[in-house]
Nucleic acid binder design. Sequence first.
DNA 1: CGCGATTTGTGCACGTCTTCACAAGCGCCT
DNA 2: AGGCGCTTGTGAAGACGTGCACAAATCGCG
Lengths: 256, 256
Amino acid sequence: MSQHRHPGAPGRAGAVPALPDLPEATVARLPEYLRALHNLADTGHETVSSEELSAAAGVNSAKLRKDLSHLGSYGTRGVGYDVALLIEQIENVLGLTQRRAVALVGVGNLGHALAGYDGFAGRGFRIAALLDADPSRVGEEINGLVVRHIDELATVAVEESLAIGVIATPAAAAQQVADQLVAVGVTSILNFAPCVLSVPEGVDVRKVDLAIELQILSFHEHRKASLTALPATGGSALTALPGGFAATDTQEAIGT
Amino acid sequence: MSQHRHPGAPGRAGAVPALPDLPEATVARLPEYLRALHNLADTGHETVSSEELSAAAGVNSAKLRKDLSHLGSYGTRGVGYDVALLIEQIENVLGLTQRRAVALVGVGNLGHALAGYDGFAGRGFRIAALLDADPSRVGEEINGLVVRHIDELATVAVEESLAIGVIATPAAAAQQVADQLVAVGVTSILNFAPCVLSVPEGVDVRKVDLAIELQILSFHEHRKASLTALPATGGSALTALPGGFAATDTQEAIGT
DNA sequence: CGCGATTTGTGCACGTCTTCACAAGCGCCT
DNA sequence: AGGCGCTTGTGAAGACGTGCACAAATCGCG
């Protein structure tokens, strides 16, 4: 919406950290760019063009440039982007400079897997506590952390300056857990339970649901089957195994 | 933009596909509606208004009506939607009438959790096989299924008429697994590995990534922190660390 | 020093999604 | 039968996201 940028006009320099309000779609893609950039940095690249980076992140190059342009001008025309600098800027925008404490509630099947997931530490997050309502699970040690009872949530929140809550409980318990998280000041929740959470304004909830993803795939599978069963649509859509690898991935962001 | 083929007698396939052609955004929400509808059916409701259903699914009522209108007119003005009928229609559109076989590749931390996930059977899916490349894992029994070696994929595909592949391997192995899945005819992949998959046209890939979700939440958390630090709230906004929260405990701001 | 090769940043047009607002339709009650 | 309240279905408008195409900027080299 705001495109009133005056080129070259020094005017009022933004002394403030200037939080640009990025489009949500852009925010959702930044983590993917970040991972691609880390891969590049690990393999010794110092600069990268929008074409290369966009390929590594699975998006269109124009989209990538527009996304990055929202953060400011951190590229060099004719050269590309400085990998290290861009990593720094994206991490800064995403707020990954501070390591955020995550509480994982629900140490069942999925909770165990999440507790053992090594993607936390590597990406700016720290599991501050494992919590469960089942007394028989309290005390169990997982990945170096001891499971505590959910009633200790308030204590944990203070001790660890809790930032994010992850709900991996059955659906029936999820709302109650969400209420408890909100009550101790958590304003960001990642919900793995198959249900809709109702939270106060200002609290962000993101949802991950395996069944939903499968059902969406099922729809497309169903549609593809219907199309191949019927003739006269477009050209020869008969090939069961397409030969051409155009590297066209239609991967989509999830949620909202 | 829908040029139709022969209306009337459709040769084979029987099910008279009305050729959905639904907006992607609508497809992504249908599973949520479906779950809400199942909950309603279980609690004895026979009809439901768009207002109620949309609240249960966590969306706006106008959006829900427009979504459902794409399926056809299955509501009754002044009354609402027939729950059972709507369930049937949505399941039909999503292709859930046939139970699809899912192959789960990668029986590590996450794979174990997914193998034990009970949301498969309840929602029209069936784990047809557990596969892994690690010989030390082959033979292990999980939830009544024996882990087989990935080299048996071709056999499994034929035996079970495989429809969907789920990748729960480390990122380094994901692309190779994807290639193998595609090679045996799988055209829908759900990828939990933190990497971009390159697949031929016609193959759908959906991605689920815990780290990305957390980073998106981190961004919003970061932004919220910046906002509360900046505007004059009147109180002492000097605290560098948001230790004291206003604690907007007023639950039930059932969102938008 | 200027020129060409290269790549970013962005104006613009287009398509998709969301939201509002309201007419059309349905059932119930009098 | 007729009116009234309720709810669906949808046209229209606006917000949002995407992709093209190109000018502006930068580097390397002769």
